[in-house]
Design a protein around this nucleic acid. Structure first.
Lengths: 191, 191
DNA sequence: AAATGACTAAAATCCATTTTCGGTCAGTCG
DNA sequence: CGACTGACCGAAAATGGATTTTAGTCATTT
């Protein structure tokens, strides 16, 4: 084969979803961008949804790799947590697709965009869960429910890194790490 | 005077805002409910917004009283925090007005409903801030930024009490208190 | 002087018409 | 023959103009 049509399609779709969101991406547009007849898309993907799922899956995969690269089994849990969470959020913020999905959910409530972000969130949560379990086994963390703990960590991180900065000066990377350590690792109790 | 027209209007408006939300409450309806000519409303309130602000202010006032009733200076900060936060969220959940506002924000994005909830949130935040400051002075809490800490506490509480329960079995009142103590008071570090 | 409700301008809603878009399939081309 | 295409279809959404609703006013009534 002279050109990989599937790859062309996936790349064009990724670009379009990132640039215009789920709803505003048309199959005609993807076909044109990919230099492919519209029918060809349907030989690889049953419908628009499956095409989107492929793109979303790739994103999640990339983020997993990114986290694995950052993770260092020799370092302490909270050290790894801070670096990985920040990298993930950083990535999410920089990554056009995730940003578009968030906007689309807020502005139009597109169900498929919502589902995509849920998938992404679940992937992040279950990734952290595994690391929490390992940290408990290593004796770095108190025994605690890994699912709830992962949930709390992500929520706390999103709250500090993103929600705090509505009308308030955003917190520095380092400040956030320090706060997470204060609140979750050491606790506020003064005795 | 035979009847207090202002009071009639405020009561009718409170009922209507709670029952139908901000947008779906019409001045004609309030007038009829209050057994008052529409013009009369405008002798007490410049416009619909001011009428709403009055209702919202009353709600916040009531919640402050409720919190003050629960607060006991002799008890430990986290004891008070748990009881007050839970009461506030409980109240918010039960209180028709707040519930309606939350729905209206989600379903239609009514700006005035959003503003109202922001006011309420700010009131809760600044209330907790005061208590945090007191607890730091009493030596019950480590020195920390009271504004950020109040913010984190509310976010964590909302996450556990409300956001967790999307598709998952909700956490018990007592479990939430226990988790807040684990995460924020004692910390997860196992040293 | 206090209260009212018919009135107005502006905003929201409705709805018929048009346009767009996901998905198909008969036909083309290599 | 079979990979590929784009004109075509019905369903769903966008458009816009007519109609209704509603916040706010003010001349009139009590």
């Amino acid at each position: 084969m002279t050109v990989d049509r599937r790859k062309q399609i996936v790349e064009a779709a990724a670009k379009s979803f990132s640039l215009f969101g789920y709803k505003a991406t048309t199959m005609d547009q993807v076909a044109k961008l990919a230099n492919v007849g519209k029918g060809t898309i349907y030989t690889f993907f049953a419908n628009k949804e499956e095409l989107f799922d492929e793109i979303m899956g790739n994103l999640i995969q990339e983020m997993k790799v990114l986290a694995d690269t950052e993770y260092d089994a020799d370092r302490h849990f909270f050290d790894n947590l801070n670096r990985i969470l920040y990298r993930l959020l950083d990535y999410r913020e920089r990554h056009q697709l995730a940003v578009k999905m968030i906007h689309e959910i807020r502005d139009m409530g597109t169900p498929k965009a919502l589902e995509g972000m849920r998938q992404l969130e679940n992937a992040i949560l279950s990734y952290i869960q595994v690391k929490i379990r390992a940290a408990i086994d290593k004796g770095e963390l108190k025994p605690c429910d890994p699912e709830i703990t992962a949930f709390v960590m992500v929520k706390l991180y999103v709250a500090l890194a993103s929600e705090w900065a509505f009308g308030r000066p955003p917190l520095e990377k380092e400040r956030i790490a320090e706060l997470i350590r204060l609140y979750l690792m050491n606790g506020l109790s003064a005795d």
